[in-house]
């Protein structure tokens, strides 16, 4: 989206590992992922259900639920070590620097307070000097911005009086009201209708342009990714298998899973019927992940080595890398010639 101010680093995640220690064994929900996010940049995170997208986000927010634990790696936000934050530091970090829009809005709206009350409190926790009247005014403006009508009446209502789509919009308003530097949006528009989704995406872009916040946008929807993201991380079974600028991911995908995803969707410009090309097989059982490349059991291009060893990252273009043995081979061939 924005060419300005995208050089400065806001967030750096390095080799992050999250495991769940369950009676049935260790689930390596996030198996060592790394990325950078600059101010004003939007990174999309796509991947199968259960690939670790949400757990990765929760670790940044310090919201991992037991038995989940960060077991390795680092998270650095504006030069600060997030994993070393004390409880108080974490709370203030969440109140002022980062905000998260959750997959399920009901889990984070308090049923016993009015919507207005919750928005005002969120704002005042962040900005201690703002007067109640000003906070209310800002809350109402924000509600209007996310497309809620009748705001005066709506401010006085409770979460259960809102439809699912409206609650999601309130969540988005709550996430944006304090002008966080980093917004983590976990499937924020999945439950919404496309017309409402379009409104929300426009709004997020507008605010993002003004405030230069960084956004991590988790979604299944590749259309949404194409619309709002500058770069994309593609996750599979707890690993980032490919990462790159949005155009590269769509026009020059370098990992068989990414290629498969793009090929399995109906084409936008299809003028008549074309049969879909699915990715065969089923998602990984995270309790018993395959050795080697996690995509191997479903990959048409699978080779012997894929079944034994996890492929390393290969730079396939500027800021574009892929973890696939095919790319390793290509690179080796290039070096030989």
């Amino acid at each position: 989206m924005s060419e300005q101010n995208t050089e400065k680093k806001l967030l750096e995640v390095k080799d992050l590992r999250v495991s769940f220690f369950t009676p049935a064994g260790e689930v390596k929900a996030v198996g060592g992922i790394s990325y950078d996010l600059n101010y004003g940049e939007v990174m999309g995170v796509v991947g199968e259900s259960g690939s670790g997208k949400s757990q990765e986000a929760y670790s940044i927010m310090g919201l991992l639920q037991s038995p989940g634990k960060v077991i390795g790696g680092s998270i650095t936000f504006e030069g600060q070590d997030v994993l070393a934050f004390s409880k108080e530091e974490m709370t203030s970090f969440r109140g002022s620097k980062v905000a998260m829009i959750f997959q399920n809005p009901m889990t984070c709206l308090n049923p016993v307070y009015t919507i207005g009350n919750q928005l005002v409190e969120a704002l005042r926790a962040h900005d201690k000097t703002i007067s109640k009247a000003d906070a209310e005014k800002r809350a109402m403006e924000m509600m209007e911005m996310v497309g809620i009508n009748n705001v005066e009446k709506r401010m006085k209502q409770y979460p259960h009086e809102f439809s699912g789509g409206m609650r999601q919009r309130v969540m988005i308003a709550m996430g944006l009201i304090c002008h966080p530097q980093l917004l983590i949006a976990d499937e924020p528009t999945t439950a919404l209708d496309v017309t409402i989704q379009a409104q929300i995406l426009e709004l997020m872009k507008e605010i993002q342009k003004k405030t230069k916040m960084g956004i991590i946008f988790i979604t299944h929807n590749l259309g949404v990714v194409a619309d709002i993201c500058d770069k994309v991380s593609v996750m599979y079974a707890g690993k980032i298998v490919e990462q790159g600028p949005v155009d590269d991911i769509f026009y020059e995908p370098a990992h068989p899973y990414t290629m498969g995803l793009l090929r399995s969707m109906p084409r936008v410009d299809a003028e008549s019927y074309e049969r879909l090309i699915p990715i065969e097989g089923t998602p990984v059982d995270m309790l018993n992940p395959p050795e080697g490349c996690p995509f191997a059991p479903r990959c048409e291009k699978c080779m012997k080595i894929c079944l034994k060893k996890m492929p390393p990252y290969v730079e396939v273009g500027p800021n574009h890398r892929s973890a696939c043995w095919l790319r390793v081979q290509e690179q080796m061939n290039k070096e030989e010639n």
């Binding site: 497309g147 009508n149 409206m166 496309v194 017309t195 989704q197 379009a198 409104q199 995406l201 426009e202 929807n221 590749l222 259309g223 949404v224 990714v225 194409a226 619309d227 949005v246 155009d247 769509f250 026009y251 793009l262 969707m265 936008v268 410009d269």
Partner: peptide
């Protein structure tokens, strides 16, 4: 027309040039 214009297309270049009709209200 509104509904079709709101569907996000999985094509970054196309999506940058597309015009959306945004509806007011619920």
């Amino acid at each position: 027309q509104t509904l079709l214009s709101a569907v996000p297309v999985p094509d970054p270049k196309l999506s940058r040039t597309r015009q959306r009709i945004v509806l007011e209200g619920d």
